[in-house]
Amino acid sequence: MLRETDLLWCFNKQSVLDKFVTTSDSDHNEGFSTCNLEISKAGRGLFHGTLDTRVPKDGRIKKAGYCSMRSQRIRKSFKRDATYDWTLYNTMVLKVRGDGRSYLLNISCEGYHDITWNDIYHYVLFTRGGPYWQISKIPISKFVFGSKGRLQDKQTRMRLDKVTHFGIACGDKIPGKFNLEIEYIGLEFDPNHEEEFAYEMYKTEKYIVGV
């Protein structure tokens, strides 16, 4: 229905939280950040932890400091891989209560070739901070295409019928504690939003872009 939010995840019980996996750089010996996803005092999902930008002295790592939560792969029967089909929607809706930091929303889509496995669409989730809830509506057309965290020169639209994972990451280079309370993550169809892709896709000069 128009203007109605369909919930993907409503973080009100542990079983929903179990569908997410948290990762931080300390899990891979690449830093010292830690994070956790728990039920908060208000009965919602609380993604919290400590961001640490110290770099381990192994001579290999240049930068450190990230924490992320990501949904587990959706499956069909007999553990076959499935994908979300979000073609009916054009807006992402999140009801969150943050701490003033900015977070990163990540959507990964399925690709056939192995070089596409690290392709993720990103957008920023700004939080107000404070005890009040905020509802952020983000048009999916605004998500930026990146590979291994590097924004790509040749931007493409997201394959909304091939969405495999959704995640939220904290890595704003500010060391310290972070708290992001999430009530729900949903999708909406906004008929007034006609934009298909927010970034320029015109032809550019040869051998300068996308090489």
Partner: peptide, 15 residues
Amino acid sequence: PFDVYMRDQVVTYFT
């Protein structure tokens, strides 16, 4: 006390 981040500065507030 709760924290709110103003870029890299932290302000503690109470409700």
